[in-house]
Amino acid sequence: MANERSFVTISVVSAQHPGRARFEALLAAEEKVEPADWMPEGYRKTLIRQIAQHAHSEVIGMQPEGNWISRAPTLKRKAILMAKVQDEAGHGLYLYSAAETLGITRDEMVRLLHEGKQKYSSIFNYPTLSWADIGCIGWLVDGAAITNQVMLTRCSFGPYARGMVRICKEESFHQRQGFQIMETLCRGSAEQREMAQDGLGRWWWPSLMMFGPHDSDSTHSDQSMAWKIKRVSNDDLRQQFVDMTVPQADYLGLTVPDPELRWNPERGHYDFGEIDWDEFWAVVRGNGPMNRERIAHKRAAWYDGAWVRKAASAYAARHTGQVG
């Protein structure tokens, strides 16, 4: 791959840099790398790509849930859902700030997202068809996100790790409100239980896909592990998530849609079936149920909001004499 070749070239050149020894020493000592420190170009690029994708995921992730704000079953649920969606906007902002410390502007990241040159988590390319889906997103999708983000609090890049600490504090509210929606449905009428089961049926596998390809197929994982950007492998994180979540589904009386799922006492973990990797790659390639709609909506919101940004700049220029 062209990318890998250029990466190798950069590594050879930067191997000469005196900052490299200090960078390696920071990593070895479990100290954080800060924006002003020298870092290999590959490290910087990998982080920009990952943090930008993470930020975009938070922002695009508002759409599937925002879809239900006006239809939440009670005023209390509506208030909770609005607070949750507002948190996700905040997460996006913390992460854009973290990425900016690496020398990319927010305008640039937004442009790359709008042009399809930077992605966001594939999970947000699935539709929210019923109220149970809002429960499933909080319970499963935020649950999977927490598993991943707790790991990222130990990431070697300071601004990213600090952002994760703040985000993780807020995520547990997200997961609990989702679980509570599921619990309420499961204690309700037969129709409501069916709705909950249908939601789990559709969200289970995409949630497992959130952890990415198998370690054996994950080409860039080794380098990310060596740089301590990533601390736990995809398969290990996925296993953690399954082990935590299956007993919760049991408690709810719901059936996880995997005939191969069973407790393995020897391993001390649940065994589970194979992900449909064709579906996984199709969604990554842009052919999921909602890919086009999500970006179209995002672009429309950006362009429709242009007048607000212009008005704020004009107001600031008039009142402070700053060039807006």
């Binding site: 062209a2 990318n3 994708q53 995921s57 952890f211 995809n234 990554v284």
Partner: peptide, 25 residues
């Protein structure tokens, strides 16, 4: 993953070195 979407072979490698000042709009 989660937040590192797998890289496709055709994924462009954008020039990320932003030019100009650190201002948004």
């Amino acid at each position: 993953m989660t937040y590192s979407v797998p890289r496709l072979p055709e994924e462009p490698d954008p020039d990320l070195r932003s030019k100009g000042s650190r201002r948004v709009s």
